[in-house]
């Protein structure tokens, strides 16, 4: 961690870390501490007095059926988004891995949705599925499907899932293709000589060998679906209709900033923090194994 050859103690290193530490303290530690503290308080309806209640907010929260529904919805949403985004990316990467000529062109054409902001991705999909004007709705109507994501909760959910997965394919593709190209060609060739076809080679050699990448991407995708999709949901459905697309992070935003229920939204944000910390620890344990520390 520390260089064998290094500088001695002086005031300088403190000055060097100061900007980072100050920003961290003021905008991260202090707010997180506040949220933690508030989650243990109950404020009266007028915000005049507060009472310290230990974990009562959490007990109330975990007995709340609505919160439980949000939890289940979030789980469903993230697993579906991760599944679609990773599945599509894996298939595309497997195809691109085969191609010698033009692979770079394909990569170029596939990666740029990464650069699109979530809220803009949401706007594009909302436009394509606009109940009266949308181009897809026109086609859906032709085959007899009635589409209105503003009224139908399931359709709203599929719309945010599609928009979220669409944006994440690029990221997954890049990591999958990098992992596949790092597999020694001799392994694949040996299997080919032994008579394994492309499909068999994929499932018995390539897929098992890229498991670490798959696992890493799973965590990243779940984190993405948990938090970064806020913009998409905000643009497409605002959590509606009837909370059909309200995931945890959206609920915290809605209760806290729109509903201005400070104490009530603190407990759910602490739960969210615990989830992120858990996911990050898993992710870093994986990176820890991969990275060689000097």
């Amino acid at each position: 961690m520390l260089k064998r050859v290094h500088f001695g103690t002086s005031i300088l290193p403190y000055l060097l870390v100061a900007p980072q530490i100050i920003v961290t303290l003021v905008f991260f530690m202090w707010p997180a501490g506040q949220a933690l503290y508030q989650s243990l308080l109950i404020e009266d309806a007028f915000g005049l007095s507060t009472e310290f209640v230990w974990f009562e907010n959490f007990e109330v929260l975990f007995q709340d059926k609505l919160y439980f529904d949000t939890f289940r919805r979030t789980a469903f949403f993230s697993v579906t988004v991760a599944g679609i985004a990773m599945g599509a990316a894996l298939m595309l990467a497997a195809m691109a891995d085969r191609i010698v000529k033009g692979a770079l062109t394909y990569r170029t054409m596939l990666i740029w949705p990464y650069a699109v902001a979530p809220v803009i991705a949401g706007a594009l999909w909302v436009f394509m599925f606009d109940p009266t004007l949308g181009i897809f709705v026109y086609f859906l109507n032709m085959i007899g499907i009635d589409w209105n994501h503003k009224l139908n909760g399931d359709q709203a959910m599929s719309l945010v899932v599609m928009a979220s997965a669409w944006k994440q394919i690029a990221y997954n593709f890049l990591f999958f293709i990098a992992a596949m190209q790092s597999i020694p060609k001799s392994l694949i060739e040996a299997a080919g000589i032994d008579g394994a076809g492309p499909v068999k080679r994929f499932f018995t050699i390539i897929f098992p060998l890229i498991t670490p990448t798959t696992f890493f991407l799973l965590v990243v995708n779940v984190v993405y679906a948990f938090f970064d999709t806020f913009g998409i949901i905000h643009a497409v459905t605002q959590g509606g209709p009837a909370k059909a697309t309200e995931i945890l992070v959206y609920k915290v935003f809605n209760d806290g900033f729109v509903g201005l229920d400070l104490g009530g939204s603190a407990a759910p944000s602490v739960v969210l923090m615990v989830i992120v910390i858990g996911l990050t620890v898993i992710q870093f344990r994986y990176i820890e194994k991969k990275v060689e520390y000097a």
Partner: peptide, 25 residues
Amino acid sequence: MGFFWMIFLTLMLPVEVRILPPFKV
């Protein structure tokens, strides 16, 4: 190392999680 871990911890807290308190700050 204390500083290092403090910086490391920020990674665990995306902006979306702590919406109100940093706004107040």
